[in-house]
Every structure is written in structure tokens, then in C-alpha cells.
Design a binder for these strands. Structure first.
Length: 280
DNA sequence: TGCCAGGCGACGC
DNA sequence: GCGTCGCATGGC
């Protein structure tokens, strides 16, 4: 692990910690200044300091082709932050706190499946359920032997793997009433009935419609999948936290909703209320 | 102990 | 089309 590493220069203001542990995904943990986690079937540990981001467990080629894109490091988030702030000055506190957030380019399946599990659920429990599914149904990850928690050593399970899991079994893993949703989503994705390439190419409203044809995927889950899994930065997921913020801090509506970067602003707000005001 | 959680589907109107 | 309700489970 330690001998295989690379260092990526990162834009000023970028925060790997806010990006990876802010609720966009559920498989990263900060331990002793390192961000440990698995994506694209690879376990790595990341360390950010003023010289850049060191990725342990990946070589330079992998950093360029994979981790750089996953963290969306080539997009000008400084310009985006200024643009959304200009549209909505009341965003200042959130952007000041969480302005280092990038929108992760996750695998569409992982984003979709994770947020089906997330509904009416809390983040620690979502993480637990996903960890158990990875441990039991995921392929062994590259570098998995270095993982500090066993489940981190496994990839997110493929749709095919989950399509063969009985609904009852999902319940045993703590999925509750979402078990039926998972079986439906996994089977219809595995069969090709829902095609991620079609969703990628479709206009955003058509993409929403396609995702919402799945049982257990409503407006909020579709929005999360599109934002975190399909790079649709204009998508603006509204959960109970964001709804409260809209009703208290952004009364009278906000132009943010029409921004091509609404999803980035949404993540600033979510991070801010969760880590400061929100408590819990 | 209750209340709540990155909501959704079913149902009634 | 819109408001309400039940839902599984565990974190706090």
C-alpha cells in the first residue's frame, strides 16, 4: 500500500474530506487524517495537505484516469462557487463553510442503489446496510487486503449480484421495507430494461422519468442518482434537511433552483446544516 | 423512551 | 392533481 502511491495537485479550496464524507456516498471514513474507502472496486487511502492529495494504493496512471475524475478535480469549482453566490447571497454561510465540496462522479449504479437505501433512513444506518451488502455480495476489491474494516475490502455489488438476492435476505441485512425496492431495481437494471447509457444521453427530464419508473425511486432519489452518478449538476435533491433550510434560511424562494449548478449549492447547504446547525 | 431519518407508494378525495 | 398515512429499523 505505502509503496504504491501518487500525488495529485488539487485546486486551492478543494476539500477531500468534505467531498468524501459529506453524505454524497457512504463508503469513506476518516481515520487519523486519512480518508479510507472503496470506489470502482479499488480500496485506497487519501491524505490531503497543502501540497496536494496523496493517494495510497494507486499509481500515477490510475490517479489520472480514475481518482482525478472521481473527485471532479478538473472542473473550475471556484467559478461555480462565485456564480451561485452571485445568484443567492444568502448562500454565503454555507459556501464559506463547505465551499471546498466537489460533486463526486460516482458509478451510476452505486449512487442509485445507495440512495434507494437512504430513503427515510439515517446516515449511520445507511452506511451499515451498504457495508453489509458489499461484504456479502461484492467482489474482492483491489488492495482489499489493506482495508482496515473488512467490508471496505469489497467492491459495491453489481446489479447482477443483487438481482439474485431474495427480498427476505435484504430484510435480514436491515433494509426494512426497502428490500422490495432493491430487488425490483437490481433486477430491472441487471436485465437491461433500465439502461444507464440511455439515461446518460437523455435530457434531464427524460432521465428523471426513466429513473422514477423504478419502484422505490421518487423525485428525491432520482435527483440524487442524477447528481452524484450522472454528473447532472443542475439537479437539486430536496430531503428533510434541505426542505427545512428552504423554509427558514431561503424563504420566499431562491434563484438557486434554476442554476446549472444547483446541485453544488445544495451540497454546500447540506454540509453546513449537518455539521453546524443541524447537530444530530 | 420516543422521535427521527438524504422518501416513497398507496389511497382517498 | 393533491394531502395523508403506513412503512422497518436502529441512532440518538
Amino acid at each position: 500500500m505505502e509503496e504504491n502511491k501518487c500525488c495529485i495537485p488539487v485546486p486551492a479550496g478543494f476539500s477531500a474530506a468534505h467531498t468524501l464524507t459529506g453524505g454524497q456516498c457512504f463508503r469513506w471514513t476518516e481515520r487519523g487524517g486519512r480518508l479510507c474507502g472503496t470506489a470502482f472496486g479499488r480500496y485506497v487511502e487519501m491524505e490531503q495537505n497543502d501540497r496536494g492529495l496523496t493517494v495510497y494504493g494507486a499509481d500515477g496512471k490510475e490517479c489520472d484516469s480514475l481518482w482525478r475524475r472521481y473527485l471532479d478535480l478538473d472542473r473550475d469549482y471556484d467559478a461555480i462557487r462565485r456564480e451561485v453566490l452571485a445568484m443567492e447571497p444568502r448562500l454565503a454561510d454555507s459556501a464559506g463553510f463547505a465551499g471546498g465540496v466537489h460533486i463526486l462522479a460516482q458509478e451510476p449504479w452505486e449512487a442509485l442503489c445507495s440512495f434507494v437505501i437512504s430513503q427515510n433512513n439515517n446516515i449511520p444506518r445507511i452506511r451499515g446496510i451498504i457495508a453489509r451488502l458489499c461484504l456479502h455480495y461484492g467482489e474482492r476489491a483491489v488492495n482489499g487486503e489493506f482495508a482496515r474494516e473488512e467490508a471496505e475490502g469489497f467492491a459495491f455489488p453489481t446489479p447482477e449480484a443483487l438481482a439474485n438476492v431474495a427480498e427476505e435476505t435484504f430484510k435480514e441485512f436491515g433494509c426494512g421495507y426497502r428490500a422490495a425496492y432493491l430487488t425490483d431495481v437490481a433486477r430491472r437494471v441487471a436485465s437491461g430494461e433500465i439502461d444507464f447509457d440511455d439515461i446518460k444521453k437523455a435530457p434531464v427530464n427524460e432521465a428523471r422519468r426513466m429513473l422514477m419508473s423504478l419502484k422505490g425511486v421518487g423525485p428525491k432519489v432520482a435527483e440524487c442518482a442524477l447528481l452524484y452518478g450522472f454528473g447532472r449538476l443542475e439537479c437539486f435533491p430536496v430531503d428533510v434537511w434541505i426542505r427545512r433550510a428552504l423554509e427558514t434560511e431561503f424563504t420566499g424562494g431562491t434563484a438557486l433552483l434554476d442554476s446549472p449548478y444547483a446541485g453544488v449549492a445544495q451540497q454546500y447547504i447540506f454540509e453546513y446544516i449537518r455539521q453546524t446547525g443541524g447537530g444530530r
